[in-house]
Amino acid sequence: MAITSFSLVKPLRRFLDENFERWLAHRLPSRREHQLNSRNIMIYPTRFGLTYVGFVVLVFLLGTNYQNNIILLFSYLLASLFISVMLHSFYNFSQLRFYSRAKQQGYADATLYYAIKITAKKTHYDINAHFSDVSLNSPIVNMGQCKQGTQELILAYKPSKRGQYKLGRVTVFSEYSLGLFKSKAMLDFGHYAIIYPKAKSLIAGQYQLSGQVDEPNRESYQTMNSVGSDDFLELKSFVRGESKARTAWKQLAKGQGHYSKHYQTSQGQLTWLKLSDMPSNDLEIQLAYLSFLIGELTAAKQSFGLALSSDMANKSMNIPPNSGFEHQQACLTALALY
């Protein structure tokens, strides 16, 4: 009997939760900036608040049973205090502005920090924040006093696996002034995290970068040609602003005109990081190697492409060779989402 009732409760609960989520999504849509007001603040008594009400009733009973007006007055005062604390609680919480950027990215097992800027017009007390999703295991961040002006709260999130995560809402709450009420707002900043695979270093010589097929094997990828290396390509007439180091002095001395030397970058030796080339059978480890290599190559300012699919023509899965920070981000994101 107990089991059946339990199983009945569960779907009901899920149903309620879903409905609540839908209602929340409708009422508090995702935005970068939120201002607390009566629309988005939920206020309800805490456990202590409920105990307090019970306590007030107890005092009332005491007063009634002893027909003691002063005890009755005491209980009425405590009861009215409950109401005024509720209002104080609300006004302490309202009119705060929150701003936060939605996206953060980082490697697995590293902590991500979501900064929430709080703008206050007066001093607010006991502001706490955490991610609403309990499974994220984010600690509650407390700000005892939020002074007039702008302050920053930092929420930490430490993911353990690669991928893209929606972090859901941020719960901001306060139990000021007497802990009887919890004013709460569940704000949706649209927070999400892109988690790259954790870099796993490759031992030298274990892997060779595959460049063009005909390229001779080298000892290690570290000795690869770097961007703008010294293979001379051609002379072009000097353009103002070009480095004098590149001036073809010989030609200039001969009176053939002002030319500057242009060198060939390793255009011909396009390097591709291929998933299938990674020395492991485990996909996650392969991705971890790739993550490491992307970091290394970017640090070495080397141009590379990422081929996650063995079919080189698959444009959606492969990223053409390039270099720089943005390229690195794009590649790592591709790894995260693979």
């Binding site: 007006n69 009425y76 005062l77 009215s80 005024s84 002034s177």
Partner: peptide, 16 residues
């Protein structure tokens, strides 16, 4: 806080 509550408390005392 108590001052603000006093009003309601008085009303309760008078009419409850």
């Amino acid at each position: 806080l108590l001052g603000q509550s006093a009003l309601l408390a008085m009303v309760l005392f008078l009419v409850f």
